[in-house]
């Protein structure tokens, strides 16, 4: 495709991203830096502030479908699941708007989402994070990293690797228009196991990657190695997802009182 085609593609993907993902990096950064006119997020830093947040201050209802539990680590695990499920739904709608995605076999669309959504979520999570914590509940709450670290094992191990990734990823200073193309490239990945039409997926991903490369040259003209750095981040994200899947398996095995949302069961089953 020519330059103008790639610019059109970048615009389409950016519009789809802004339309379907509820929390943009722009909004998150404005909340985190205190520059927004809306009220500051409620800070969750210990058990008391967590239950205050759960009593209607931050979340309007307890984690739906999750059994009531007094164990704090289990509770946080359910909250992570709720957010993940909601984001999978948003990512599915985003994927449907990426040019070429709905033309793929339905089976291949399922495969791309199964393997791509967690990488996409961990690529978007840094937008909500700084080194001290992360925004939750659509920006109404801020959970401190220290509180998440203080949970008992294995629950304390859920978020820490994502913070470590986020600190490095945020140093690249991507904006929503860059992230839109990056996330689209993650979803349209030609080497997911079990794809029926690999060539078709590779062709779509190639177009997205060309659009991303061109977009970065214009949007980050002073950062010459940004495109290859992002290709490396794709590999890092795959590793992060593998470790996350192993941790979820461990929690399932050792924490008999926890349950996994049916959508996440589908995604994790026979994944890696």
């Amino acid at each position: 495709p020519g330059g103008s085609d790639l610019k059109t593609l970048a615009k389409q993907v950016n519009t789809a991203y802004l339309k379907n993902l509820s929390m943009t990096k722009k909004r998150a950064r404005s909340i985190l830096s205190g520059k927004t006119s809306s009220t500051s997020p409620f800070v969750i830093y210990d058990v008391d502030t967590l239950w205050k947040a759960e009593s209607g201050l931050v979340w309007s209802q307890l984690a739906p479908g999750a059994p009531l539990t007094k164990e704090i680590g289990v509770h946080v695990f359910y909250r992570c699941q709720c957010t993940t499920v909601e984001t999978v739904r948003e990512l599915t709608e985003f994927a449907k708007c990426i040019p070429g995605f709905v033309d793929l076999f339905l089976n291949d669309q399922v495969t791309l989402l199964k393997y791509g959504v967690h990488e996409a979520i961990f690529a978007m999570l840094p937008s909500l994070m700084n080194k001290d914590g992360l925004l939750v509940a659509n920006g109404k709450g801020f959970v401190t990293r220290e509180f998440l670290r203080s949970l008992r094992k294995p629950f304390s191990e859920i978020m820490e690797p994502k913070f470590e990734f986020a600190v490095k990823f945020n140093a690249l200073e991507l904006d929503d228009s860059d992230l839109a193309l990056f996330v689209a490239a993650i979803i349209l990945c030609g080497d997911r196991p079990g794809l029926m039409n690999v060539k078709q997926v590779e062709q779509s991903q190639d177009n997205i990657l060309q659009a991303l490369d061109l977009h970065l040259q214009a949007n980050h003209s002073d950062s010459v190695y940004l495109f290859p750095k992002l290709l490396q981040k794709m590999a890092d994200l795959r590793q992060l997802v593998t470790e996350n899947a192993q941790l979820v398996q461990k929690i399932k095995k050792t924490e008999s009182e926890t349950s996994l949302h049916p959508l996440l069961q589908e995604i994790y089953k026979d994944m890696y």
Binding site: V85, K96, L106, V110, T111, K114, E266
Partner: peptide, 21 residues
């Protein structure tokens, strides 16, 4: 694949919100 990924299929085929969160 369809049998094993019913909710993902449902999400892909419906534009409204079919998943009970």
């Amino acid at each position: 694949l369809k049998e094993k990924h019913k909710i993902l299929h449902q999400l892909l085929q419906n534009s409204t919100s079919p998943v009970d969160l």
